[in-house]
Amino acid sequence: SQQIATAKDKYEWLVSRIVKNHNENWLSVSRKMQASPEYQDYVYLEGTQKAKKLFLQHIHRLK
């Protein structure tokens, strides 16, 4: 749906803004993002596993 696509774009923007180093780990980054509406919306719509998967894809691109 359009809502999910929009939430994903915003979440990816948030991840790219916060995660600048491929050594970052999911636990510390997800804690930093918990207060962000972009993170909350995406997790609400798609779940934590998908959020983690996108985070890991971003990390992989930074290597």
Rank of each mutant, 00 (worst) to 15 (best):
Q2C: 09
Q2T: 13
Q2A: 08
Q3T: 11
Q3I: 10
Q3L: 10
I4L: 10
I4E: 02
T6P: 00
T6N: 15
A7R: 03
K8M: 06
D9F: 14
K10W: 06
K10E: 06
Y11Q: 02
E12Y: 08
E12C: 12
E12R: 10
W13S: 15
L14H: 02
S16W: 08
S16E: 11
R17P: 02
R17N: 11
R17A: 06
R17T: 12
I18L: 13
I18Q: 06
I18S: 08
I18T: 14
V19N: 01
V19C: 11
V19I: 07
K20C: 12
K20E: 10
N21G: 10
H22C: 13
H22P: 15
N23G: 10
N25G: 11
N25R: 07
W26K: 03
L27W: 11
S28P: 04
S28I: 05
S28A: 13
V29L: 06
S30P: 00
R31Y: 08
R31H: 07
R31A: 12
R31L: 09
R31S: 11
M33Q: 00
M33E: 00
Q34P: 03
Q34L: 09
S36Q: 14
S36M: 15
P37C: 08
E38P: 01
E38S: 06
Y39I: 03
Q40R: 13
D41K: 09
D41V: 06
Y42M: 01
V43C: 09
V43P: 01
V43D: 00
Y44V: 14
Y44S: 15
Y44E: 15
L45A: 07
L45I: 04
L45P: 03
L45Q: 09
E46S: 04
E46L: 05
G47Q: 02
G47S: 04
G47N: 00
G47D: 04
T48E: 15
T48Y: 15
Q49C: 10
Q49H: 10
K50W: 03
K50L: 03
A51M: 02
K52W: 03
K53T: 14
L54A: 06
L54W: 03
F55A: 03
F55Y: 09
F55W: 05
L56K: 12
Q57T: 08
H58R: 03
H58V: 07
I59C: 13
I59D: 05
H60L: 12
H60I: 07
H60E: 15
H60Q: 15
H60D: 15
R61V: 05
R61S: 11
R61I: 01
R61E: 12
R61K: 13
L62A: 03
L62E: 05
K63H: 03
K63I: 10
